[in-house]
Write a protein that binds this DNA or RNA. Sequence first.
DNA 1: ACAGAACTATGATCTATATCACAAAAGACG
DNA 2: CGTCTTTTGTGATATAGATCATAGTTCTGT
Lengths: 229, 229
Amino acid sequence: MDLPGQVNCETCRIRSCAVEVLDQQELDILKTNCAGAVYARNERIFQQGSLTSNIAYVKTGLVKIHKNGPSKDQILKLVKPPRFIGIPTVLGDRINNYSATALLPTTVCFIVTSTFKTLIMRNGRFANEVINSICQDELTFYDRSINQMQKQIHGRLADALLFLADEIFEADSFDLPLSQSDLGDYIHATRESVTRTLGRLKADGLIQVKGKNIKLTEKDMLRKISKLG
Amino acid sequence: MDLPGQVNCETCRIRSCAVEVLDQQELDILKTNCAGAVYARNERIFQQGSLTSNIAYVKTGLVKIHKNGPSKDQILKLVKPPRFIGIPTVLGDRINNYSATALLPTTVCFIVTSTFKTLIMRNGRFANEVINSICQDELTFYDRSINQMQKQIHGRLADALLFLADEIFEADSFDLPLSQSDLGDYIHATRESVTRTLGRLKADGLIQVKGKNIKLTEKDMLRKISKLG
DNA sequence: ACAGAACTATGATCTATATCACAAAAGACG
DNA sequence: CGTCTTTTGTGATATAGATCATAGTTCTGT
């Protein structure tokens, strides 16, 4: 983790919708209670179970949110910046309920939790934007959960690939930012099943694979697979 | 649905933490934009896909939040009052992203969405309480998701029974508020599997079943099953 | 009280995907 | 450059739980 330290929220070009609505005085409060950090691929941003007094704002890169389950670690979601993560630590206990790890080189701003709370209390529009953002996340996660539960592995993998292409990279060709084992944790499958299913999609000509690079050549077909489960 | 209509938020004894922090003027705003309703068992409170301009506050009873998946309806969570439901409709589109159905006779207050938003904007403490509540829900749902995914059916059923006993009824003996088919939608299993697994728990002497009534006689053992999956 | 619907019970079979076992390939690093 | 670790590929086997089929039971409305 590299620490650029001091940041300037006023001139920051990757501000969240929430920060957009702050006034000058509030930006000053934020600025003096905010520190930047840079993470390399696979570096842990925060760890489940650890005490914290910060909320993280992911500015660039890609982050996985993951949590220990009864039998293994599971990736709850992939977070594309810009996005706040770890907001639930505003709750009393201040213990991270999940881990966050960079999947690509990632820049993060840490905001002191009490400052975040102060801004919520002071500025209703800020609070409103935060609520919107959490609600959006909530709905997305509901959908993802249902899909994970009800689709079988082909559909879940197709979903993941389409998500990476459409939402994360906005390109039909991209380098997989996760190992197949991670991908398994994300779509709830074993590494072996991921390998086999990827192989199947490749054999059927729906995707091209060159090392880490994946190219979705038949997105319509992938979407159909995603639909049918 | 029976409509008591006019409610008085000032004297309401089942106020949320959020409403607790409102001042007199805000309570007046709330009161004039709030209507009560009573639902019978299995009555729909709101329907996924329908347009709405209200947020619901469940005062008493028990509610299931459920949503259509690719292959079937799934119960996302059981909501024990008091609790707001449907907050995500504060997002632009105002379309319910899931359904809510009463599992027991249930009383609900509907709050006009714009009023809810006004209160968030006006009163930072209200906003803060709302955020706390959503965050709490979020964490609970993460845990539930991971458990659903990683545990097998015995563990999932044990979880559900312990949840009903400990969180909902606060008693080791209770009448199942869901059919076995619903229970299947809740723990992601078929009705047949629920029947068999319940039968198994009964045969093993961990629970007693008399019609709809269930009595957890070996909670420690159930907890062990829940842990081991 | 009775007919129709909804719910519960249980056995027989099938299947998607986990597990296990091993090997090859690709990265990491002294 | 070679060793060590991590990642990927692939077959053989096992299994939890779905699906199918059939009946009995309880609820609901008239």
